[in-house]
Design a protein around this nucleic acid. Structure first.
Lengths: 348, 348
DNA sequence: GTTAATAATTGGAACGTTCCAACTTTGTCA
DNA sequence: TGACAAAGTTGGAACGTTCCAATTATTAAC
């Protein structure tokens, strides 16, 4: 047992047919007689045959393997986990298997991971690029004709498909909502300043601040790591200001949760004494207390849509780059104070 | 461009050497002259060569590809995301790449995913099996001599390595702690009853309840999906009892967060009016408010240790099944009320 | 100046599969 | 009976790599 692996030839010998016939059975070809097929299948099961995809791909250089790769920059952020399951639901029903790798924002790791996936002949790639990824990094992929869909973060020069959410509109809506509730000192909290997503959301915030007449003030944007801990930290800095804000538009939900934690630790009740709005609408957003008012980007939906874009490219002969913007909407829950009697302006 | 793919022979021609030499360069063999090496490497870059792992694996049937697979049953649970990054850190430094797949508790999907990984010649597998997985499902893997480490959930008859946390001891400690705080009506909340993990944790709970003299009562165990929403739901049922509990040992942290949400929705303050202890110690546990008292199982640590076990097996010729229990410890924070003046017994 | 040792390179066979063209068997029809 | 078609089956070549044994080029030793 277990000496050499079981090959198609072993099956052929044991079943008394030729390797070609076995191969036809493997491909469910209608050419082969029903009785032969069942016999061959039986022998396969008996000997514990495992299909060698590598050898097969070697022969048919055109047909790639039935896997699609998804590369994310931060798996511990549940946004990406949800995105991945969204992708999974659609690739699965198309007969693909999804392999996911995490880069932890490391460009080097990202290169390794993508190379590894290429070596295994993935049919296509969905990538949420690590910070600092440039168009050149994607060049080899497009040259090889491998379909790629960028999600979450777009990369300017790359000639690949992309699906990002409408960050500008989302942040704009968040500010408008808070302004309508009577806030004027609205902070923009969290996120790394050197990313496209940050720029877009900040842009929406800035435009809305200008439009609502309260004006944009530099000091009201306080950045941090885009995590729960980052939110705690950023809030501390915001509250240390001479004239602290009364509301915050957060870079994402993780930051928003951190902000709520930080508020509570200061005995300030989010949704009552201070308005918080997040960005992403992760699952916890609706069950947490207070329920988080946030900009819904529907990670699963984005995953599904990205997967559909990718499959379309895979099925079409030559991949046509297509870029889409996924619309977002404001979900009003409790953390902004809109559900309460008074807009939160108790502190000053 | 992109007609046929670039092969080792193309490189050889362009560089004016033989394919064997190119192959040696690929393997970083010391046999090849430094000047040839640099020239070959240059040509590779220029022509955009991609290593064909499939063809390589074909030849060297022994040496498997440098990927290890990790199969989890619920990616949306951040416990598994953290476990995966733990695994990643160690396999990465050993020169492997990790491919992760999610089964969403589906046995069928799990079979597909594992088959796919086998076809791609993974060097080893770390599996958190879907509910209902049986020893036979793993049989083909052990027959093929593929190293496997089971995590989180063990499977009785399977002859593979496993690494589970000491669920019995953890639940036991949680109950002891709550009892010491003065609670006697302590519920066991959340989790699916037909899993080994549930049985173990429940066992620890039961033994501790008996030992502390309050005795084990069936009605105090209320199961649910092991998620935040499940926790909300289970708490509702618990509080509807004629004599509701004053404390809860939760199946996991997600459930515990749900329980806290449910309590707050009822205007009961977790950590003050009701004691909650979780299980897992996910990252949010320490930043949330109130900080969650929980049993730390250190998912990253488990991931790392599992990865080490797997690598050991891969490096050893024949895999020796080894099973380990990862110890757990009680992390006292705020949600159990220990940090407050009074043990939470205000309600009755 | 020959031999021996070392360093570097090389062609061919092999890995497990698919594809193609050729082959055999069986059945149908004039 | 012979010609033809349809249904199954088959051997060999090819895919891109690595390994082996053999070869050539270079250096060292006498």
């Amino acid at each position: 047992m277990g000496k050499g692996r079981v090959t198609v030839i072993d099956i052929a010998k044991a079943a008394g047919v030729s390797k070609s016939t076995v191969s036809l059975v493997l491909q469910a070809s209608p050419l082969v007689n029903e009785s032969t097929r069942t016999k061959v299948n039986a022998v396969m099961r008996e000997l514990g045959y495992v299909y060698n995809r590598g050898a097969a791909n070697l022969r048919q250089a055109n047909a790639r393997s039935k896997i699609i790769g998804i590369v994310v920059n931060d798996l511990t952020n549940s946004f990406f986990a949800e995105l991945a399951v969204g992708v999974d639901t659609v690739v699965q029903s198309a007969g693909f298997v999804q392999f996911l790798s995490n880069t932890s924002e490391s460009i080097d790791r990202q290169r390794e991971v993508i190379a590894s996936m290429r070596e295994h002949g993935v049919s296509g790639l969905i990538i949420s690029p690590a910070r600092g990824t440039e168009a050149v990094d994607l060049k080899p992929l497009v040259m090889a004709g491998i379909p790629v869909v960028l999600v979450v973060r777009n990369i300017p020069g790359a000639k690949v498909s992309s699906l990002v959410s409408d960050n500008h509109a989302g942040a704009f809506a968040a500010v408008e909502h808070l302004a309508a509730l009577g806030h004027s000192r609205i902070a923009f909290v969290g996120g790394f300043p050197d990313t496209a997503v940050f720029d877009e959301r900040l842009g929406g915030y800035r435009d809305a601040m200008s439009k609502t007449g309260t004006g944009f003030q530099d000091e009201l944007v306080v950045s941090s790591a885009p995590s729960r801990a980052g939110g705690v930290d950023a809030l501390a800095r915001a509250m240390a200001m001479p004239e602290p804000p009364t509301a915050a538009v957060c870079f994402n939900d993780a930051v928003a949760f951190g902000v709520c934690d930080g508020l509570r630790a200061r005995r300030i009740e989010p949704g009552k004494d201070f308005a918080v709005v997040g960005f992403d609408d992760v699952i916890e957003a609706k069950t947490t207390v207070p329920a988080l008012t946030t900009i819904s980007v529907d990670p699963q939906g984005i995953g599904q849509r990205a997967a559909q874009m990718l499959l379309k490219q895979i099925n079409a002969g030559k991949p046509e780059a297509e870029s889409a913007v996924s619309s977002v909407r404001l979900i009003v829950r409790e953390s902004c104070g809109a559900a309460m009697n008074k807009p939160g302006r108790k502190m000053a």
